[in-house]
Design a protein around this nucleic acid. Structure first.
Lengths: 160, 160
DNA sequence: CAGTATCCTGAACGATACTG
DNA sequence: CAGTATCGTTCAGGATACTG
């Protein structure tokens, strides 16, 4: 088991700056980072989304997730199980039957993630055009690389 | 847990599949994944959190984020800038002065992320104990590796 | 000060083969 | 069917050095 274990950066925190009201995700050891790393890795979110609709067997997930390797599906499921987000049920039948389902905790996570999904859907156009604008500006800079800047006056310059 | 129904605001391509209401993150090309990858990478969230409190200079961020390399801070800021989440202002003074601040879009993202932070804070104890239980069970299995299972009856077996 | 350029390592991941 | 074990590759990210 080489990679199921988190690296668990036990980082020494010596600074006692008084601004730690906003520190929720600044500390390495903070739980938020761990959870975020879990739900944001390549497959976890997909699996959670699928299991949110119904309980499924291993092979079903393997088919549905489309692109995941057997190994990564196993690893992902083990992590989610360890965190108490999914539950694994083994039926002692001749061809092994294992079913996965979201735990109640997993369900609440799934709803929490929804707000982010909604945000993304709401703002994807803005992001796309921001990217386009940025890339256009970069393109312009490349053409400009040797020339004098006609807009270089005295004020601050926005990079957009 | 029987009803996952993501509300999937208005973004539906004309697929006939009846359950594509839940497909928001199943598709590889979906925007959600891109955004999620951005906000969930190692540093973006930290930077956004810091900039949510006040605008900051490059070196300030380098100090505050604590652990980030110069390279990764640059990369992170460029990505966030490209996505229109932060704005970069260059003051044309003799020692270069560059300030970063959240855009209005970035502010909305930050609030959206809060729900996840709240979820994590609310459930971190549950997760911690789930992990402890899982690890304890694994430990027990290792001791049991060669012996007969006293609980192996007829029913399904939960792995927790 | 605020970067860019370059090199390098280790973790993540995929592919494959084997097993209860 | 539902995994585990092993190997090879890729690539994110750290360290370091240089620059306008």
């Amino acid at each position: 088991m080489e990679e199921g274990t988190s690296k668990s950066a036990s980082y020494s925190e010596g600074t006692e700056d008084p601004w730690d009201a906003c520190q929720w995700d600044v500390r390495e050891g903070c739980e938020v980072r761990q959870i975020l790393d879990r739900i944001a890795d390549k497959w976890s979110l997909l699996v959670v989304a699928l299991l949110a609709s119904r309980r499924m067997r291993f092979t079903e997930l393997l088919r549905e997730v489309d692109g995941v390797s057997q190994r990564m599906l196993t690893v992902t499921l083990r992590q989610l199980e360890r965190d108490g987000l999914v539950e694994r049920t083994v039926y002692p039948v001749v061809p092994p039957r294992v079913e996965y389902e979201l735990s109640s905790l997993g369900v609440t996570l799934h709803s929490a993630v929804q707000s982010l999904v909604v945000w993304t859907e709401t703002h994807q156009v803005e992001i796309a055009s921001a990217r386009a604008a940025y890339d256009r500006a970069q393109q312009a800079l490349e053409s400009d690389h040797g020339r004098a800047d006609p807009a270089s006056g005295a004020g601050a310059r926005r990079t957009r």
